[in-house]
Simulated assay, not measured.
Amino acid sequence: MGDSPPRELIRLADDEGNSVTVNVLGRNVRWAAGLDAEIVVKTPFVSGRIDLALYVSKLKSWASALDRLDAGEDVAWMEMSRGPSIVIQLTGERDCPEVVVEDESGSMVTVRVPLVPPDDWIADHRQRLHRVMDYWVPMLSG
């Protein structure tokens, strides 16, 4: 585990400078069962970030999303909750994978980021998820 808490839950990036990351910032001071996090979008054209609350059920649903992606299915993560959502389309509008970050309940902005992640990206993200859960879940209550 190391001395420092794991920060990156999701890091989808390519050689063109496009990336979507979900960073865990730490425990939520107002809600003992939650983590403060952020979604960060960076492209040569547009960049932005939005706050995100994570809790154990969202982390577990990310594990299910990774299983569906591994089976060749597109996924929508956090689509039914308040706040932003992330949609991963394995074959997007430009015939390559796309990550769509939507914030319908807040800013009403949607950003579509085409990118080609490395071949082992699903296994890498399973490891990232396990590190985050191993470190943070024992500290969360509720």
Rank of each mutant, 00 (worst) to 15 (best):
G34E: 13
A37V: 00
A37R: 00
E38W: 05
E38K: 15
V40M: 07
P44T: 03
F45G: 08
G48L: 10
R49A: 10
R49V: 04
I50G: 10
D51P: 09
A53S: 11
L54T: 02
L54D: 04
Y55S: 02
Y55V: 00
Y55W: 13
V56W: 05
K58T: 11
K58V: 12
K58W: 07
K58A: 11
S61F: 04
W62M: 03
A63Y: 07
D67P: 02
D67A: 09
R68F: 03
G72A: 02
E73A: 09
E73R: 10
A76Y: 11
M78P: 05
M78E: 02
M78H: 01
E79N: 12
E79V: 10
E79H: 11
M80G: 14
S81F: 13
S81D: 15
S81Y: 11
R82I: 10
R82M: 13
G83A: 05
S85A: 01
S85F: 04
S85Q: 01
I88R: 03
L90M: 08
L90D: 06
E93G: 14
R94D: 08
P97F: 04
E98N: 01
V100Y: 03
V101Q: 06
E102T: 12
D103G: 06
E104L: 14
E104K: 15
S105M: 07
S105H: 12
G106A: 04
G106K: 01
M108E: 14
M108S: 15
V109P: 01
V111T: 11
R112E: 11
V116D: 06
V116M: 09
V116I: 13
V116L: 09
W121F: 15
W121K: 10
A123T: 12
R126A: 07
L129V: 12
H130I: 08
M133H: 05
D134N: 11
Y135P: 06
V137G: 03
P138D: 04
P138H: 01
M139W: 07
S141A: 04
S141D: 06
G142W: 05
G142F: 04
